[in-house]
Amino acid sequence: MLTIFKKAAIAGVMTLAAGAALAEGYPEKPIEVIVGYSAGGGTDVMARTTMPFIEKYLGNGASLVVKNVPGASGQIGITEVANAAPDGYTLGTFNLPGMMARTLDREAGYDRDSFTYLANVVNDPNVIVSSKDSGINTMDDLIAAAKENPLAITVGMSSLGGDDHFLLIKLQKMTETEFTIVPFKGSAPARTAVMGGHVAVGIFNVSEVAKFAGELNILGVAQPERSEFAPDAPTFREQGLDLINGSLRGVVAPAGLPDDIAAKLRDAFEKAAQDPEFVKAMADTANPVAVVTGQEFRELTDSLYDLAKEAWETTPWN
């Protein structure tokens, strides 16, 4: 009841007063950043590492407080963000393509239009890896083996319906191959299974395998240029495969955030992206930075939604 009243009041203020007046004093109180995962998880560390820099560039003595609302792979947290008042005092972390895929494979309490898109902060490209003594050293080896004996190659990954799964779907379509998917619970057990030779190859994000360079071969990286996390690993494009895919982590606000407040927040993210200290802090915590703000972020979300939708319609995973 009162939320509706609040929202109505804010909408009223927005139409009555010129927007600029609102942003002038923003923020007047602590801003809550809802993280849909437990403290210490990848997304939590991204949020906690980023927030001091956003405080710095927002000025006004801004204070951003992380609130962990873990559960259901981020669903509980992001639903809370979608239902919050769009006053600039509730933000939330946003993971792609997971958050969009969940609107397809289950009933979700939000959709693409529930958010004001502030900034994507991290883009962690997918990689395909094999263990050093698997005999699979290049993408050519892998594709040849898969063609010779369809479904014989086992692929470990962190879950179905995530970015690693979508990469495999793209690869299978592109090369007309078929693999056996082995979805572990999380990437660390999957990575261990690749190292122990229990599965032939694995699909991960580059930050997850960068520290295992001595144990794993990176067959390809799914971004246009080589990753600074694994400069020796070739991209898929270098090997004639147009595969671009990854896991994205950003920050959104509820839909209907006043434009001037949104602009102020986006500006802070853009400034942080230029800060070498920020880039270093993120690299130390395994977060490849690729800041994209506003409309561009929204378009990125749309394209990942379309990808997930196509994958869901052709090869549903549950």
Partner: peptide, 11 residues
């Protein structure tokens, strides 16, 4: 991880 200590043989 909070302290930039990423698990792995390189740790």
């Amino acid at each position: 991880l909070v302290h930039g200590l990423q698990p792995g043989p390189m740790l």
